[in-house]
């Protein structure tokens, strides 16, 4: 579903690359954690999938398509196939729960009757039935994140990208959110989640891809947050990489869409 072939992303010519020759494949229906310290390249990975940035070299395939070859007027179609959830929820404060989710369908031209049928169904999936008319500030953080997830999946994307979705939530609430994501994954959606939350990763026992300084240092099925197996093959390259300048690409959640002055 997502395939990276020798992808390198350089934001700044003088600094080290944000992603350095990354090759990896995430299959349809998979659930993968992307772990690593800040600046390890997690957000860059997600941005490349969304075609928010271009890879400096190498190729990114999403649903079999090389994203570099998608013309700009077709990028919306690519993004319709990908749902995104952020740490800071990004709900529209003046719109109700229902309207926030419906917004994602309105802007791509879905008819009123389809919206009326689909939104309550999705809200039920994320466990928010009966709260359609609340405003975001009347909800708890966990509930707000559920609204954001509902919005991300209401158009039935094949892929759900989550950028530290539990970063603002307490452990119990986080587990609830993970339950929702797991449910969505079991319905066939590929889920890629960037996270720092070791408890969650250890609990879920899914595939873990660990990045450090833009290099994949571990890719393990049913893994834990920290590996018990010493990494042999990559150790020399790692030493090289860590010796270089520690330039960090801006995190995905720091970028405000819409203003987009120098970011895009």
């Amino acid at each position: 579903m997502i395939r990276f072939e020798n992808v390198t992303k350089v934001y700044n010519q003088t600094a080290r690359p944000a992603l350095d020759d990354v090759s990896l494949e995430i299959d349809r229906g998979e659930f993968a954690f992307l772990v690593g310290a800040s600046g390890s390249g997690k957000s860059t990975f997600l941005r490349l999938v969304l075609k928010e940035d271009r890879a400096s070299s190498g190729a990114v395939y999403v649903a079999g398509q090389n994203v570099a070859k998608i013309s700009s007027w077709r990028v919306p179609r690519l993004r319709r196939g990908i749902g995104v959830v952020f740490q800071d929820f990004r709900l529209l404060p003046q719109k109700s729960v229902f309207a926030n989710v419906a917004f994602a369908m309105q802007v791509i031209g879905k008819s009123r009757s389809v919206i009326r049928d689909t939104v309550p169904e999705v809200l039920k999936t994320v466990g928010l039935e009966g709260k359609e008319n609340r405003l975001p500030h009347e909800l708890s953080g966990g509930e707000q994140q559920r609204v954001a997830i509902a919005r991300a999946v209401v158009n039935r994307p094949g892929i759900l990208l989550a950028d530290e979705p539990t970063g603002n939530l307490d452990p119990t609430t986080s587990m609830g959110i993970m339950g929702v994501l797991d449910k969505i994954n079991q319905n066939g959606t590929t889920v890629v989640m960037a996270t720092h939350d070791d408890d969650i990763v250890n609990e879920m026992r899914k595939r873990v891809v660990e990045l450090k300084n833009g290099i994949v240092i571990r890719d393990e099925a049913k893994a834990l947050y920290t590996s018990m197996i010493p990494v042999v093959g990559q150790s020399r390259r790692l030493k090289d990489a860590s010796g270089r300048d520690e330039a960090q690409p801006p995190a995905l959640e720091d970028r405000d869409p819409g203003t987009g002055e120098e970011q895009r």
Binding site: L50, P76, R77, L78, R79, R80, G81, I82, G83, V84, R90, L92, F103, A104, V107, I108, R151, A152, N155, D256, P257, G258
Partner: peptide, 10 residues
């Protein structure tokens, strides 16, 4: 905010 979300949902 709105336009950012509009972008993301395609």
């Amino acid at each position: 905010r709105e336009t950012g979300i509009m972008r993301l949902v395609g």
